[in-house]
Write a protein that binds this DNA or RNA. Structure first.
Length: 460
RNA sequence: GGCCUGGUAGCCAAGUGGGAAGGCAGCGGUCUGCAAAACCGUUAUGCGCCGGUUCAAAUCCGGCCCAGGCCUCCA
């Protein structure tokens, strides 16, 4: 049974979906006004782990990730470049999808764009107006939080504690109560939809309610995002959705902590702002970045440093080297320690992840297996069959971790010949020639290792 | 000011009352023609600080210090 920490109840709860065997998952996606940075990707990697582990555990996952393609920043950006909103956001949407692929993030079943769901938003807003939860002011429409008594529950905010006086109305719209939020904004900036509500554009929060309920139903299982979304975004989503439907909106709210860079919040002014592309251009391995973002528990702050990235790179390299080494176990010998070690690893892996995605514990199980196997390997005691068992286990859990290099890169005829040639040279004690060949292959990114059981190769 | 996280070895990090997991890096050794990989040994009498509860505390309680977040449409 998977336990998940629920922000709504402030405790871990066993995960029970509304529909047996199916998990409805809504994960807040990007606002496409710029390239996503690694802080954003921390959230997406966490969501990917959740998605993959639910599937590993036997659930069918139905997942939605929204694309916010209309808001102040996208409008401003597109107008600054003299482009249409679509033209402007398309570029960042494709960049985002490419980045997701680099990090091996599973594609959600639906990636809906806000601009393609205006009618659904209008319909919710109409309902809120009818029920008296919303009001018009000029040509904008606001949600009245005073009508929704449980407002503040998710974020544990006591409304009387919010000091309206210090707030500036950044949107320059008039509201009855400054704490109310916009459902619909009157026409400005020449970006508008002509609807039954009048000309205008949707507020931010309403899109998530509209798109999640469209694809997952009025009530669904899990909603995730970064901690900074708790208030006001998710609080507002709950208010408007539940007010409109009269039903419980979401059962489990999961939030991941922020990523820090050198112990500081990432920000453009501090110059510690990394996009995925910056890091890849510097030659960093996307899988190591994935591992780094994955390997710290999602509710703990993650401090991103150059050193931690190097550590992740080494770990991923060693992990894959072990996986590849299994191909060179050719003996028929058997070691009785392997099968129980695999079972133990699987047990620790699932027990760890069941406990609110305790990835550190889960990984420790895997590394202990590798240790046991390496000891057996040193004795030459891993046979063909056991090596295959280990490989298939690593492939099995890679459906969750996605850090394995499984592509079968065979050697070319020429490369094979070079290795044979070097073998003969070594036999003849012609080490100069042997080393030359080794260097030559190294230049082609093939590393040779001479083990007691023959020469083994791997690609880097 | 209110609410909420986190502080465990050089670095990352698990661990909610009774043996301080795991990863990365380092050092010494084994193996090797030399390497590489792997293995063996080594690296916190102590878990931010001070008190308290208990036979027993990283773990519970109180206070304090440090870092970060939210309280204005940031993952």
């Amino acid at each position: 049974m998977i336990q998940l920490y629920n922000t709504l109840t402030k405790k871990k709860e066993p995960f029970k979906p509304l529909k047996d065997g199916v998990a409805g998952l809504y994960t807040c996606g990007p606002t496409v006004y710029d390239l996503a940075h690694i802080g954003n990707f921390r959230a997406y990697v966490f969501e990917d782990l959740l998605h993959r582990y639910l599937e590993y555990s036997g659930f069918k996952v139905l997942r939605v990730m929204n694309i916010t393609d209309v808001d102040d920043k996208t409008i401003k950006g597109s107008q600054a470049e003299g482009k249409s909103l679509t033209e402007y956001t398309d570029r960042y949407i494709s960049a985002f999808i490419e980045d997701m692929e680099q990090l091996r993030l599973k594609k959600p079943d639906y990636l809906p764009r806000a601009t393609e769901h205006i009618p659904e938003m209008v319909s919710i807003i109409k309902k809120l107006l009818e029920k008296g939860y919303a009001y018009r002011k000029d040509d904008s429409i606001y949600f009245s939080i005073s009508k929704f008594p449980s407002y503040g529950k998710l974020a544990s905010i006591d409304l009387s504690e919010i000091k309206p006086g210090v707030r500036v109305d950044v949107d320059e719209y008039e509201k009855e109560d400054v704490r109310d939020f916009a459902l619909w904004k009157e026409e400005k900036e020449n970006v508008f939809w002509d609807t039954e509500l009048g000309r205008g554009r949707p507020g931010w929060h309403i899109e998530c309610s509209a798109m999640s309920m469209k694809y997952l139903g009025e009530s669904f299982d899990i909603h995730t995002g970064g901690v900074d979304n708790i208030f006001p975004h998710h609080e507002n989503e709950i208010a408007q959705s539940e007010a409109a439907t009269g039903k419980k909106f979401v059962n489990y709210w999961l939030h991941c902590s922020h990523l820090l860079v050198n112990n500081e919040k990432m920000s453009k002014s501090k110059g510690n702002f990394h996009t995925l592309r910056d890091l890849l251009n510097k030659g960093h391995n996307p899988i190591a970045i994935r591992y780094l973002l994955l390997s710290t528990h999602y509710r703990d702050p993650l401090n991103f440093t150059d050193k931690s990235l190097v550590q992740a790179e080494n770990t991923v390299k060693n992990y894959n080297a072990f996986y590849q080494a299994m191909d060179f176990c050719k003996t028929e010998k058997e070691d009785n320690s392997i099968r129980p070690a695999i079972e133990k690893a699987r047990k620790v892996f699932t027990e760890g992840l069941n406990e609110d995605l305790n990835i550190s514990l889960a990984l420790s199980g895997i590394f202990n297996l590798i240790k046991t196997a390496n000891i057996a390997l040193t004795d030459g005691a891993i046979g063909v069959k056991e090596a295959a068992d280990i490989k298939s286990f690593l492939e099995e859990i890679d459906s969750v971790l996605a850090i394995l290099d499984t592509e079968k890169t065979e050697l070319t005829e020429e490369e094979r010949n070079l290795i044979t040639e070097r073998g003969s040279a070594r036999k003849d004690k012609n080490f100069k020639k042997a080393d030359e060949i080794r260097d030559k292959l190294k230049a082609k990114k093939i590393i040779l290792e001479d083990t007691p059981y023959g020469t083994r190769w791997k690609r880097t």
